[in-house]
Amino acid sequence: MAYSEKVIDHYQNPRNVGTLDPNDPSVGTGLVGAPECGDVMRLQLRINPDSGVIEDAKFKTFGCGSAIASSSFATEMIKGKTVDEAYEIKNTTIVKELNLPPVKIHCSVLAEDAIKAAIEDYKKKQESVAHAEPVAQ
């Protein structure tokens, strides 16, 4: 099985590898997958609380080349999008863009899950911030 050029490119030159402070209230972290399954993706988003725009995205992934490429591509795709737009992203877009074969579709599903998990984490944090503020005043 040969890898598509795009997968190879993302594998060799992954975009946005790194770590954001998980305790920052404007950062949402999604950690999906399991080491036993051979795939773990961590996607982090820094979101502007006023505009809801994703200003930065970082990932780290344990997994095959297609999993790495899916998460790298996902960070590229969601930067600049609003939270609501990002939440609508479907794994099929990743499959198409990276030309993933059927056996690698689960990698794209995992990337979609990671985006959603990161956004949900951010929203939960924002709720508790909003909740916490009146008490502090």
């Binding site: 399991a34 080491p35 773990v40 780290k60 344990f62 599903v109 899950d113």
Partner: peptide, 26 residues
């Protein structure tokens, strides 16, 4: 190269016991 982008390696280096994490098996 791969450990630089492995969340597991980062977590292990921070002293997190990976067995204690509640992973969502898929």
């Amino acid at each position: 190269h791969l450990r630089d982008m492995s969340p597991l390696y980062e977590m292990a280096k921070m002293g997190i016991d990976l067995k204690s994490v509640a992973w969502a098996a898929h």
